[in-house]
Design a binder for these strands. Sequence first.
DNA 1: CGAACACGTTTGTCTAGGACAAAAATGATG
DNA 2: CATCATTTTTGTCCTAGACAAACGTGTTCG
Lengths: 303, 303
Amino acid sequence: MSNLETVFNIAAVERDTGLSKDTLRVWERRYDFPKPGRDANGERVYPQEQVDKLRLIRRLLDLGQRPSKVIPSTSAELTTLLESYRATSAPGTPAVVEQELMQYVKLHRSGELLAALHQGLMKQGLQRFVAETIAPLNEAIGEAWVRGEIDIPEEHLYTEQVQNILRGAIGASTTSNGRPRILLTTFPDEYHILGLLMAEATLVPEGASCLSLGTRTPLADIQSAAVGGKFDIVGLSFSVAYPARHAIEGLVELRDALPTHIGIWAGGAALKDKQRRLPGIRVVTDLADTLTALREWRSVHST
Amino acid sequence: MSNLETVFNIAAVERDTGLSKDTLRVWERRYDFPKPGRDANGERVYPQEQVDKLRLIRRLLDLGQRPSKVIPSTSAELTTLLESYRATSAPGTPAVVEQELMQYVKLHRSGELLAALHQGLMKQGLQRFVAETIAPLNEAIGEAWVRGEIDIPEEHLYTEQVQNILRGAIGASTTSNGRPRILLTTFPDEYHILGLLMAEATLVPEGASCLSLGTRTPLADIQSAAVGGKFDIVGLSFSVAYPARHAIEGLVELRDALPTHIGIWAGGAALKDKQRRLPGIRVVTDLADTLTALREWRSVHST
DNA sequence: CGAACACGTTTGTCTAGGACAAAAATGATG
DNA sequence: CATCATTTTTGTCCTAGACAAACGTGTTCG
């Protein structure tokens, strides 16, 4: 049996952590971490543990820490630090159901997971199910991922099951003539689709007609699809891992490329507190705010 | 609206064209194009026309052209070349329904597309719908893409709608205790999911219990998921675009990493005629063959 | 006491050319 | 014709220096 000792090249680490190749190299130069090995060709080879630590660091940077502070710490210290954030922020979200679902993910109980999700959907209805079950669960999964408690296949399994549930429910309640007409997609280097599906699941029951292009649409194509399809709004989703700077640059460029009568809504953790750098763009802070944005649009466009 | 002379920095060009910064710089060195200006800080500044030409080039590369051939040409010549692709490969004579669906894709009639797909599903049942409608349509879409008749957003739109339909239908007929237990996924650099969904839609009605991990699962994770989840079979899907050599290497490595009692099924256009280089792996030629493989497994494992 | 400004530090991205392996094209051989 | 070996093409990685934007800190002023 061959050894599948997991190592990563620099491109893979960029994908997994959201830290650019340039950043990874300059950190190595300045802070002496990460310290990858080299293969026969002199190219960097990152072991699993260093990638894990980089993910922890990335998470702390998103929380406002600075590289020089966190990079020298050990993984254990970083985990403690992350948990201290967790303690301060989470006000009353006990969620027994959430813990149960999380267990199914960790134990690969896909059957039970699907059944429990289905049950939640039936009980709460699509919108509440998404807002009260899926969204918090997403966050819990993200945190567990950073803490190394869950793995890629577990995250894949989770994403697949949620997609199965949400796409089924969206398909059942879809309308094609409602207003506004909303085009949903992501930028080319964003792979995460759950944000889009959650937005669609929130908007469709309100009578908006949503069209999702899935992930990874080039900017020029977003523009031509929006104009050609006579959409009122373009909705973009950014996961935590998406570099805020990229998001802002891309959004500004898109705003410039679209006629002013087409609105842009941008949502996701990467854009928290970035509204002031995004004139002409509606930053959607969470799913409830998505509904607020919808009401705003309708009150402005009612004649 | 945008100011008269819109210019782009290298990061923006990477976003807009999908060509990496490294590639842009090395082309400039080797082919003397693109030839961006420089700002006060000595950094590249790309004018609109060069970005437009880069997009044309990108498109031609996707169609199989090589950089050294196309980069020296003018934009006008490239446009002509692109149009020649449309003219050359005459489309065969696809079925009437198929043509109708294709029209919906081209015209962005997502509502009608979804309705027609739904109707097809109701009329034919899941298995026949997949084999007789979706599979040929997939091929027609692929050909139209090569001919330049459809674009990235149209392909995305198609993929999304088919996913909505198939996931809904699979969810409705899923069983969790059937045999064999099949794990479905793709290798890390394969993004296309429709092959997996079609396989799942074919197998689930036969009473197999399928678990899809979605796309892009690292080899080591496929291995641990297959062993940990006590699966009987691992199913991999490869789209036309997937390099056959990579597929073969990966499959051989996976075969080596899995215990012999776990079967490997590999399907997709990339593996046509490669069976003899893949000992211990069942190459599945099409959807009908998938059912044959299932029957084979059951007759061998019936006690 | 808080806002506004100036200053030093931190940090990410850009630059140049060199190098090399994977992929494609080409030629040779069964 | 198909398979194998060789050459050319092409994308990605390398090093190490530079600099502007973001950030933190200290100072001054209303």
